[in-house]
Design a protein around this nucleic acid. Structure first.
Lengths: 204, 204
DNA sequence: GTCTATATTGTGATAGAC
DNA sequence: GTCTATCACAATATAGAC
C-alpha cells in the first residue's frame, strides 16, 4: 500500500482514480488528471515518477478496501447461506460506495492486462476456506452438487455484472419497460441470495 | 450496416475488429491495424476517412450477428425452460466463436459510452415477448415470482460475465485450485440453465 | 488502389526559475 | 513544492507520385 503525505498528493490520487477508471490506462491523459487535481502537469511527475507509478497507486487505493472486506467475509465462520448473503451485500455496498472499481478493473482487463494481473497477484485473496465449506455442505447433503469455483463465479457474476453493464441494461431494458437502476440494485441485496439459495438448496 | 466491397477493405475490417477489441478505441494504433491487415497506413485512410469511421464499422459488424441471433432466440415460440437453455447456448456459442465481442462492448461501455448507446439503440432488440412469457408462467404458478427483467439480467450475468472477467478468474481461482477455463465454459452450457431452473422452478 | 514521404498534432517527461 | 517552458517522440492524417 502507498502512504500518502501531503494534501496535494491526495488531490492528485483522487483525480487519478477517477480519470483512470473512466479512461483506462492508455486513454487517461496526464494533463486531464492535473486539471482535475487543480495543479500543474509537472507536479504529477514530482509526486509520481511516471504514469505507471500513478496507475499503480490508484489501483492499490481503489482495490485494497474492497478486497480486504470481501476476504474477511469469505473467512468468517458463518453458515453457508448467511455467508452468501454477506458476500453479496459486501460487494454491492462497496461498489455503490466506490462505483469506479468495476470500471477500473474492467479497463485494466482490457488495456492493461499484464499490469493488472501482476497487481492482483499481490492481493491477499484466499478462497480456499470458502471452497472447502461448500464442499462440506455438499458432502453433508445440505446443498446440491456444484463445483465450488462455479458457485463462487456465479455469486460474483450476479453481484458485479449489472454494474459493469449498467449503461447497456438501462438502455436495452429501459427501452422496453419502466426501469429504475438504483432501486433495482438495492433490491438485489435480497433477491440475489434468494436466487442462489433456491438454486442449490436440497428440499427436505 | 456497412457494406463491404473490396478484398482489401475486408482485410482492414477484420484487423480493426481484433485490434479495437484488445486495445480499445484510444489504445488501438492505426499502424498496428495496418500491419495486421498487411497493408499500408495510408490505405486505411483511403477506405475509412479516420479512426472513428473504422471503429464504427467494426462495432456494427461485430454486434450485428450476435444481437440478431439472440433476438431470434428470444422471439421463438418455445417453452420457457427450453428457451433459457437456448439463450444461454446462443450467447456462449457466439462468444466462443467471436471472443472479441464482450471485450469490444465493454470497451465501448467504458470509453465510448455515448457512441455505444447510440449504436445500440439502432439494434432491433425487443425483449417484451420474453418478459410476457415469464409473466405468464408466474401467473400459471409454474415458476416462482421474479421480476422478468431481473431474470433476464441474471441469465445475461451468468452467461457473459465470466468471459469479461476471464483474466481475473483464471488468476484468482487458478491461484488457489486447478482450473481450466475452456472446459469450464463448455460445461456452462449445461450448468447455467440447471442453476437458473432450480432457482425458479416450483416443486410440485 | 497502393505506396513513400511529410505535415501536424498530441502527450509523457524533464530542466530550471522561483 | 510549484510553476513555465520545452524537449523528444509517437500517432493521426494528408499530399502527391506511380
Amino acid at each position: 500500500m502507498t502512504t500518502i503525505n501531503s494534501e496535494t498528493e491526495q488531490k492528485i490520487l483522487r483525480a487519478a482514480m477517477q480519470i483512470f477508471s473512466i479512461e483506462g490506462f492508455k486513454g487517461a491523459r496526464m494533463q486531464e488528471i492535473a486539471d482535475k487535481a487543480g495543479i500543474n502537469k509537472a507536479l504529477l511527475h514530482y509526486y509520481y515518477r511516471n504514469k505507471e507509478t500513478l496507475y499503480k497507486a490508484s489501483f492499490d487505493t481503489l482495490t485494497f478496501k474492497i478486497f480486504t472486506q470481501v476476504n474477511l467475509t469469505l473467512h468468517k465462520d458463518t453458515p453457508l447461506f448467511t455467508k452468501i448473503e454477506n458476500i453479496v451485500a459486501a460487494y454491492i455496498d462497496l461498489i455503490v460506495e466506490t462505483p469506479e472499481v468495476p470500471q477500473f478493473i474492467l479497463n485494466g482487463i482490457i488495456n492493461n492486462q499484464d499490469e493488472l494481473i501482476k497487481n492482483m497477484q499481490e492481493l491477499p485473496l484466499d478462497i480456499k476456506p470458502f471452497m472447502q465449506q461448500i464442499q462440506n455442505e455438499i458432502l453433508k447433503g445440505n446443498i446440491k452438487p456444484i463445483h465450488p469455483a462455479e458457485l463462487l463465479i456465479n455469486i460474483l457474476s450476479l453481484s458485479i455484472f449489472p454494474f459493469a453493464a449498467r449503461p447497456v441494461i438501462t438502455n436495452v431494458v429501459g427501452k422496453n419497460i419502466e426501469f429504475n437502476f438504483d432501486e433495482f440494485i438495492k433490491s438485489r441485496k435480497k433477491t440475489i441470495p434468494e436466487f442462489i439459495i433456491n438454486a442449490i438448496k436440497v428440499e427436505k
